[in-house]
Amino acid sequence: MSRVWFITGASRGLGRAFTEAALHAGERVVAAARNVEPLADLAERCPDHLVRLPLDVSDRAAVYEGVERAAAAFGRLDIVVNNAGVMLLGMVEEATEEQIRAHFDVNLFGAIWVTQAVLPHLRAQGGGRILQVTTMGTGGGFPMVGMYAAGKSALDSVSEAVAMETEQFGVKLTIVQMGGYDTSLFTTGTTMTTPDPHYQRLRDELLQMWGDDAGPAPDTAVPVIMELIDLPDPPLRLIVGNASYDLVQTDLEDRTAKYRAWEHLSRKAPG
């Protein structure tokens, strides 16, 4: 029997690519997004395998209601992909309280609400898969994307706890640390801070460093995800992206070297 996917942020970028891949594999999908109109073509092609679900993941009550509708649509949930996300782009000092809270409401709390809502269903049926889509940049902050990295880093930690808590129920969770893909996150999914002129030099340097390359198409990541969900013993964490893997390893080595450089001071405390 085909499996049932529940994918948030399914109308564009990686979510759309995962939705298309699951449908192509003969799976059934409940595709959730704030605006589900971009999924109309898929609904027309796969009317018996796709249910579009309008959903704002920042609304906890709506998430719980939406998950109940999703589980009822095909009778179960097998693969949950927490993919919905937004970007707050700007220096930390520039960000308003409203912007910060709205950002975390989607990227952190939205994923937590979905996780909480699906777990009773997965536990009752004896298992399932959860993919928590984060980023290869969760190892630390970086200028202009500090809030994004913070939300995804927090989700990493929460997800690791969930994985340990729910393994006993047959739930297998993987933190999918995506590299840079052309998902429109930096365009339609972005909120910009009001630039502070004190940071203009750094801002110019960063924009020049990033350039205009939006990264590879989202569907190039699909084969990895499709292989991942078929693994009987999947990893807790998986970096998705060849270049991203190298960057993460370099960052880890640099961080280890810096810890060791100050080991003599760290060891002066007994804790």
Rank of each mutant, 00 (worst) to 15 (best):
I175M: 01
G241R: 00
T193Q: 06
L202K: 09
G127T: 04
R255F: 05
R201I: 13
L131A: 08
H198C: 13
G126Q: 06
L173C: 00
F186P: 01
N242R: 14
L122W: 05
T190S: 11
P120M: 04
P232I: 05
G170C: 06
K152W: 03
K152S: 03
L122K: 04
Y181W: 07
P218R: 01
G170P: 08
D212Q: 12
Q132V: 03
M209K: 15
Y199H: 10
S153E: 10
A214M: 15
L207Q: 14
A154W: 14
A221D: 01
P232G: 02
M178N: 07
G170V: 02
M164F: 12
P235Y: 00
E165D: 11
A124E: 10
I175G: 00
G146I: 12
G151L: 01
T134Q: 03
A217P: 02
D196K: 09
P195H: 08
H198E: 15
A161Q: 07
S157M: 11
G189A: 08
R203F: 08
Q168A: 11
D213E: 10
P197F: 08
S157A: 15
A217I: 03
A149I: 10
M192R: 15
M147L: 15
K152Y: 02
P232C: 05
D196S: 09
D251N: 13
V133M: 10
L228A: 05
L207C: 14
T134A: 07
L207S: 12
G140P: 02
I239G: 00
V222D: 02
A161T: 12
L236S: 09
Y148H: 11
M144Y: 14
P216V: 04
E205N: 11
D246E: 15
Q125G: 03
I239D: 01
S244I: 08
L252W: 10
Y199I: 05
M178P: 12
A150H: 08
P234L: 04
T135H: 03
P195E: 03
D156T: 08
H121I: 09
G137E: 13
P195M: 07
F186V: 11
Q177I: 07
L206K: 10
D230I: 05
G141M: 02
G128H: 06
V171A: 06
K172W: 00
S159T: 13
A161R: 06
E205L: 11
T135N: 07
P223K: 00
G151Q: 01
D212F: 08
V158D: 00
M147C: 13
F142W: 12
G241E: 02
A243K: 14
L206Y: 15
R237Y: 08
L238T: 05
P197K: 01
L236E: 01
G189M: 04
R129A: 01
P235H: 01
D156Y: 02
M178G: 08
P120K: 03
R201M: 13
P235C: 04
A243W: 06
A161H: 05
S153C: 10
G151R: 00
A221V: 02
Q249R: 14
I175L: 10
G189L: 04
T194F: 04
Q132M: 12
P143W: 04
A154M: 13
D254V: 12
H121C: 06
A257M: 10
L238E: 01
P232H: 02
S153L: 13
G141N: 03
E160M: 04
